[in-house]
């Protein structure tokens, strides 16, 4: 990396953007560690939140709902997309278009539609959420996988696997999935992040998950809710930054 005057605009950009991100976040954090009336700082709000029984209950619930969403996404999208790419079907344009449709529909409107459409046995089961999350994440998940599959010689790979005697299922699981693993990882991350933070659909359909629980907490214990919110924002923030920083730099070939 060249340093010096060339990178001054970048440094300014990063400083401004950093301030934009850090000032409210840091100031909220400062607020959340204040010690009520006696003054000074402490982690009591965080301790309260973590000790709260509902904290782990809703965290676990949100986690498994998100995991199910990821599973649904992979099980449905990988074979479908593989087939689309292999068969060159005319259905491709249709399915490409459909996958983008959820972007057009505001979640609020979608929630109203869901509420008036699904039969009772679906609406009474929390399992409706992963399917709805799947739809919400579809435009992103679909594109991530699509790009991954476009980048590999899919036809050759699958034909090689098939002629070596693998069934279609095995071909997908053993050959294709590993080759597109970075696209799969991206899909998993995207879908999981979107599901675990989803609020609008969940609350409008009267389900309780981690994000909606926070709003109830706020009614009794605002500081506790703020502490939980900080956890909800900071933990993925730190985790993702760490992962991004620790992943080795691959694109050295960029320079000519």
């Amino acid at each position: 990396m060249k340093l010096g005057k060339l990178n001054l605009p970048l440094i300014i950009t990063l400083l401004l953007f950093g301030a934009f991100v850090v000032i409210p976040m840091g100031s909220a954090f400062e607020y959340s560690i204040r010690r009520g009336l006696e003054g000074g700082y402490g982690l009591q709000n965080y301790l309260w939140a973590v000790r709260e029984e509902d904290f782990s209950y809703y965290l676990i619930r949100s986690t498994w709902l998100s995991a199910v969403t990821v599973l649904i996404t992979l099980v449905i999208l990988v074979p479908t997309l593989t087939w689309i790419h292999l068969s060159n079907s005319k259905l491709r344009e249709l399915i490409d278009g459909l996958s983008l449709l959820p972007l057009v529909i505001p979640v609020v409107a979608f929630a109203v539609g869901a509420q008036i459409s699904f039969p009772e046995f679906i609406q009474s089961s929390v399992m409706e959420l992963p399917f709805l999350y799947f739809i919400l994440a579809l435009p992103y998940a679909y594109r991530a996988l699509d790009i991954g599959l476009k980048a590999i010689p899919l036809k050759t790979l699958s034909e090689a696997a098939r002629s070596a005697g693998a069934s279609w299922l095995r071909a997908i699981v053993i050959v294709i999935l590993p080759v597109i693993r970075s696209a799969v990882t991206a899909t998993i991350a995207l879908t999981f992040a979107l599901s675990i933070g989803e609020f609008t659909m969940t609350v409008l359909l009267h389900w309780d998950t981690f994000p909606t629980w926070v709003t109830y907490v706020a009614q009794d214990n605002l500081l506790g809710a703020i502490a939980i919110s900080m956890i909800a924002l900071l933990v993925p923030f730190v985790l993702i930054s760490l992962v991004a920083l620790l992943t080795p730099e691959k694109e050295i070939k960029e320079s000519n």
């Binding site: 100031s27 909220a28 400062e30 607020y31 609020f199 994000p211 809710a225 703020i226 919110s229 900080m230």
Partner: peptide, 28 residues
């Protein structure tokens, strides 16, 4: 990836974050 977190998982935590930062007693 940081932008991804901010843009997508904002929502309610974001609201509370600002409530505390820009509340009457907030640091900001």
């Amino acid at each position: 990836s940081m932008n991804g977190v901010l843009a997508n998982t904002g929502g309610v935590p974001l609201a509370f974050m600002f409530t505390s930062a820009l509340g009457i007693q907030g640091f900001l």
